[in-house]
Design a protein around this nucleic acid. Structure first.
Length: 806
RNA sequence: GCCGGAGUGGCGGAAUUGGUAGACGCGCACGACUCAAAAUCGUGUGCCGAAAGGCAUUGAGGGUUCGAUUCCCUCCUCCGGCACCA
């Protein structure tokens, strides 16, 4: 046969349309026997289109799912668009183009690009979160949360992004900055809608145990939930009829507590000082701190500030009254917002010294000279090996071992009781932006919120809106929205003008993919039972404490509401690494976004996806460079040449080739299982290098190679399969299993070491006896030289090496 | 500061129940083909050596071991996460 160059453009188009015509990738959700739900995090339909990062995520995921398909699973891989969100709205502000129009256009472009990748997406099941058919379910979810007491409105200090002009959930603030735009987040007192994710803190924590997720991700969620065990003390304000509790997670030093601090935002502050000479100064201080928090200058690193309220805690421990201070570093929404302080907390220590508050010691180091310095409050001290001084029952124990004893003592004396706190905060779901799902709430003329009856869903997002960031919801500008509300609910009624966080839209989309044939029901219980949890979920690690925690919470809530059976949405999770350019994250503002299109144009989708997979392990990502793409190009061309010229009916496989073939099956299988596509490709390259030296190969070998290549280069392998006379699509063939019996060859190479240094290697027959191998090793010229001294020890590692110690 | 993860040729990376470090690919050098270049093919690519062979070597230092990229200790660097959580 004559060699001809492989032409990816024609071949890939041919198979894309063949797949589409035959509908091979359309899953029959009801009839599937071996359901396998392979999901990738759906993209945002950005004007930047599909970038290299998408390819790096989606293509290997597709290869993995293709492998699952060849293992005999009924693989369902849907694709959709997380289409609500700020960029479209900001684009509208800049250009006047309505988000609806720009989104529709971007979605259309991206579908075209996605199809070019040659993935197995079932396009019939596509979702778009900005379509009314979808967001009616986002609104439905809100109503369910509301009906079940998990959605509530609360006024308090909330995160505000001055650039995005909206509030943010805690999860969306990273290191004090807006996760989206990087602007310093400030605190603002506002009334907002929250979902009670905190009610699920313990279940979210417990559920992590059984998830096959990266350990790092589970750890991040664990930290984010932040379970803390401690003691709540019940305390009285001296001379007032007021009681409160204080939380202490390290109660070992409670007898050294000398003052109490309260958060500036705490409602009790005013009660404490009202009508006293301290009122004016304290309230002025409170206002000052609030103002500071609202300014972007406020940094947590700043020195603590405080003011005395004039009030005291009537200390039940008999260690004296504790002056109550208002203090800038106390958090209003952790614990009870009031804390007892001692010399053994670094911040308390510094605060006490700054304001000359007396200190006591309950823990001392063993070193006497250091102990003196601690006693005189010259240095701060708190170490696990420190010796506890009080109470009597724990005296002499180390700080570490005294914990239980002290807590029991506190319980016996009825000073307090055990308590668990979490760092997790409720999810702030309202946003002051346009391009999102409207919150399905209306207010009566008295301002009381009422849920919008389900029959009015979808509660349409109005279109007569000005795009101006004012800090108020753009929906307040819509005449139609208000008229609609009054028409349905009555005069004086007003709609909720805020929209929902886009993370609400993406918190249940995996369920909606299952329901695209049925717009009337949220989820079908049978389908949910059959397909959920998602078999394999693939996406970026940046969602560890956002999307991935929200989706778990929503699933748990839906289970409690009785809509689903499962409580975890994603059984297995794998993260792809990040592709950078010049060491920096790709972004439009940096101008370093690499578009895949020109590479796909030049080399084809198969080459491009294999090149990305060959860069390194899937989870590692890497810095973009196109220098190595040539290697994959060559590999594809050589594979094509070999398989179109060398297969011969007369060729037979000897034992050596069988070892090679089965060794390759093993390596490719294990590599794909472990998301190490780089070594899967390397194994195929080695196979090709070995086989290429021969005159001819058997048809069987050619087909084996093609099958192993199929998950990695779907178009090329279809073409080869057809060329080799294979029946049906290669993607429908069964994966190959290796036979351990074939992995053995007739001979093995044994390395000979003397004193741990390699001196020779010998080839022996596979069934050679240990004694013979050692004798042969001793006979090697180069080994003899080093065996002049008496041999102290002989070590034989089966099938690997002989080691002599002299 | 606290909690994770990682450091291997010129580059991407391979190899870990401890057993030939550098697979595979890029790049580079030389050669073949060509008027020439590209493409392609061949050979080489840690250091010394024509070779046989020797020596060094997985961020740095130490330890365990016949043998360490792999296990233990100390340190350095980079990346990710959290950060007034009492």
């Amino acid at each position: 046969m004559e060699k001809r160059p492989y032409d990816p453009t024609t071949v890939e188009a041919k198979w894309r349309s063949a797949w589409e015509k035959s509908g091979v990738y359309t899953a029959n959700l009801k009839k599937a026997k071996h359901p396998y739900y392979g999901l990738v995090m759906f993209p945002y339909p950005s004007g930047d289109k599909l970038h290299v990062g998408h390819w790096y995520n989606f293509a290997p995921a597709d290869s993995y799912f293709r492998y699952q398909r060849m293992l005999g699973k009924d693989v369902f891989t849907p694709m959709g668009f997380d289409a609500f969100g700020l960029p479209a709205e900001n684009y509208a502000i800049k250009t006047g183009i309505h988000p609806n129009d720009s989104t529709r256009k971007n979605v259309a472009t991206m579908i075209g690009q996605l199809k070019r990748m040659g993935c197995m997406y079932d396009w019939e099941k596509m979702v778009n979160t900005s379509s009314p058919e979808y967001y009616r379910w986002t609104q439905w979810l809100f109503l369910q949360m509301f009906a079940n007491g998990l959605a509530y409105k609360k006024k308090g200090m909330v995160n505000w992004c001055p650039s995005c002009q909206t509030v943010l959930a805690n999860e969306q603030v990273k290191e004090g900055k807006c996760d989206r735009c990087g602007t310093d987040v400030v605190q603002k007192p506002l009334e907002q809608w929250f979902w009670k994710i905190t009610q699920y803190a313990q279940r979210l924590l417990d559920g992590l145990k059984d998830l096959k997720w990266p350990g790092k991700t589970k750890l991040m969620q664990e930290h984010w939930i932040g379970r803390s065990e401690g003691v709540n003390f019940r305390e009285k304000v001296k001379g007032m009829d007021i009681e409160f509790e204080v939380y202490d997670s390290i109660p070992q030093t409670f007898l050294a507590q000398t003052f109490t601090v309260i958060a500036p935002e705490h409602p009790l502050v005013h009660t404490l000082v009202a009508g006293t000479p301290h009122e004016q100064a304290v309230m002025e201080f409170v206002e000052k701190i609030k103002r500071k928090k609202m300014a972007d200058k406020f940094k947590i690193e700043e020195e603590a500030e405080g003011i005395f309220t004039g009030r005291y805690v009537d200390n039940p421990f008999g260690t004296g009254d504790l002056p109550i201070w208002v203090c800038s570093y106390v958090l209003a929404d952790y614990g009870t917002g009031i804390v007892n302080c001692s010399a053994h907390d670094e911040r308390d220590f510094a605060f006490a010294k700054k304001y000359n508050i007396p200190l006591k010691i309950a823990l001392l180091p063993k070193d006497p000279s250091l102990a003196e310095k601690v006693k005189s409050h010259e240095v701060f001290y708190r170490e696990p090996e420190g010796i506890v001084q009080s109470p009597e029952s724990a005296k002499g124990m180390t700080w570490e071992e005294s914990r239980e004893t002290v807590i029991r003592y506190i319980e016996e004396k009825k000073f307090g009781r055990r308590e668990v706190h979490y760092r997790l905060r409720d999810w702030l779901v309202s946003r002051q932006r346009y391009w999102g799902a409207p919150i399905p709430i209306v207010y009566d003329p008295h301002g009381q919120p009422h849920p919008i009856p389900e029959k009015h869903l979808p509660w349409l997002l109005p279109t007569d809106v000005e795009f101006r960031p004012t800090g108020k919801s753009p929906l307040t500008e819509s005449k139609e929205f208000i008229e609609r509300t009054e028409k349905i609910f009555g005069k004086g009624w007003r709609p909720e003008f805020d929209t929902m966080d886009t993370f609400v839209c993406s918190s249940f989309y995996e369920l909606r993919y299952l329901m695209q044939g049925d717009p009337k029901h949220f989820v079908d219980r049978k389908l949910e039972e059959k397909w959920m949890p998602v078999s394999m979920y693939i996406g970026g690690p940046e969602h560890a404490t956002m999307h991935l925690i929200y989706a778990r919470f929503v699933m748990m809530a839906l289970k409690d509401f009785g809509f689903v059976q499962n409580e975890e949405p994603f059984k297995r999770l794998v993260h792809q690494g990040l592709i950078t350019n010049g060491g920096a994250k790709m972004s439009k503002s940096k101008g370093n976004v690499v578009s895949p299109d020109s590479f796909v144009e030049r080399h084809g989708a198969d080459v491009f996806r294999m090149y990305l997979m060959f860069m390194g392990p899937f989870a590692d990502g890497g810095d973009w460079s196109d220098t190595g793409i040539k290697g994959i190009d060559r590999f594809v061309q050589r594979a094509w040449d070999m398989l179109t010229t060398k297969p011969s009916k007369n060729a037979e496989e000897d034992k050596t080739s069988l070892a090679l073939i089965h060794g390759t099956i093993k390596r490719v299988t294990e590599s794909i299982e472990g998301f190490r596509f780089n070594t899967a490709i390397a194994a195929l390259m080695e196979f090709l290098n070995a086989v290429d030296k021969r005159e001819s190969i058997s048809l069987e070998t050619a087909r084996t190679f093609t099958l192993l290549l199929a998950p990695l280069a779907p178009h090329l392998s279809e073409e080869l399969w057809e060329h080799l006379g294979g029946k049906g699509f290669v993607t429908d063939q069964k994966w190959l299993h290796f036979d351990v019996a074939h992995l053995k060859s007739d001979t093995m190479t044994i390395v000979v070491q003397v004193n741990g240094k390699r001196r020779a290697s010998i080839d022996v027959s596979s069934d050679a006896l240990e004694a013979d191998i050692i004798a042969q090793a001793k006979g090697e010229e180069n080994v003899k030289k080093f065996l002049m001294q008496p041999i102290k020890k002989e070590i034989y590692v089966k099938g690997r090496l002989v080691s002599f110690v002299v």
